[in-house]
Amino acid sequence: MAEVAVHGHHHHAHHFESSEHEFVSCKQGMWLFLLQEVLFFSPLFVAYAIFRSLYPGAFMEGHQYLDWRMGGLNTLVLISSSLSMALAVSGAQRSQTKRTVIGLSLTLFFALCFLVVKYFEYSHKLHLGISTAGFFSLPGIHDPKTPLFFSLYFVMTGLHGIHVIGGMIAIIWVLRRARRNEFNAQYNTPVEMVGLYWHFVDLVWIYLFPMLYLVG
């Protein structure tokens, strides 16, 4: 797709008519990819809906072991990262490389903050014996289905966390290219694509936070 010559001048691939043609094609491909991502997460939302309607007591009890302040902090962190990512994209579209680099670096920093908070949450729970249903060992649980709530919690946030890490790898890739001054108003496809992906990752969390932390 992207064969980059010296001085950041971009040649579109031979089967496209122009850079613009290449850009709109990449954008459509990316939206299709995000569509499959939505479907990839969908069974978890279905499982959540079913188990919550079957065992509402387990969700009430389980969510009390989650700290909404930690979840809220992470929500703020990710919303900020969406802002910095939007700044990076608009920087690339206006050939303002410095703004792109700063925006991407900030996004990377926020992503790291998110993972650090998540690490403390996870380790605290595992320390207490709150784990997936098969390894659950916290005493004093009233509802026998509460461990299932934590299976959902770990699977949903874990899968989201893996997507955050994937996004960070993609951000590092475009950050390196931005620092080499490869993006400008004529060619900024990778920044825009990574931006779309990052906004999707944020959006998933926007759903996960109330569903898991704010049950009561």
């Binding site: 978890l44 299932l148 299976s151």
Partner: peptide
Amino acid sequence: LATPVLALTLLLLVAERVLGIGFFDPTLG
């Protein structure tokens, strides 16, 4: 639209076997 659903389902089976998440296991609810 459909393959990602299978992908996640297979992933859940793996998680079920390795991490004991119990979504499909009646002994775990």
